[in-house]
Amino acid sequence: MQDYLNTKGRIFDIQRFSVHDGPGVRTIVFLKGCVLRCRWCCNPESQRYEIEQMTTAGKTKTVGRDVTVKEVLEDVLKDRVYYRRSGGGLTLSGGESLCQPEFATALLRAAKDAGLNTAIESTACAPIDTIRGLLPYLDHYLMDIKHMNPNKHKEFTGRENTLMLENAKILAKEAKHLVIRVPVIPTFNDTKEEIAAIAKYTSEIMPGGEINLLPYHRLGQDKYKGLGREYLLEGISPPTDEHMNELLEVALSYGLKAKIGG
């Protein structure tokens, strides 16, 4: 009957008291595996589906574990009292949750059954029917748009953006609540023109919609070393507050509900 509670999936972390990814106090479940390889990714250990070893602070730890929906839900429900007080709930993040569609859907469904608010942080890089499968159980879709130029998108993330932009158009109509999130990465998309292009597209598919500008940070840098990988953005500084405010003005000029941060 409740077979979906036994659905298995692969995650690499569960983070409680998260306050920046969806409304209220939330628990984020990080699913392992991603179709993109964004150079700035702050969770490089999330990208491969395989369970792997990572060295942090001199210690080697295993990244990734296989769990059932039921197990994850038990952890998520521990903070139920705080969700009730804040309007918070569960957020799926990654990696890209859509790489494990059955697990992601089952998890969201289980959360909904428990009366929780649900959100997903996703690139929407999957066939639209896969995405449609989880929409009934989803309150907030936090979707990344990183760049409007397909070539530059491919250069920095490994894939073109065509499918994602198409999906965004559909999600604007079909998702209960869509928020577009733009990681602002110097040398990649931090000019006024590039942000303007994203804002323009957002305003076209979702007039007056919400857009968040997330300034690049370097917190993931050491993890690359720990995984024995090269960090291609070495030497790049986070955008200044001043610059972020200029970009915010650009986004606002398209009539969007824009803000800095999630």
Binding site: F17, G24, V81, Y82, R84, R85, G88
Partner: peptide, 8 residues
């Protein structure tokens, strides 16, 4: 969120 945590 802070207030929610105290309430919780």
């Amino acid at each position: 969120s802070f207030v929610a945590m105290i309430r919780g």
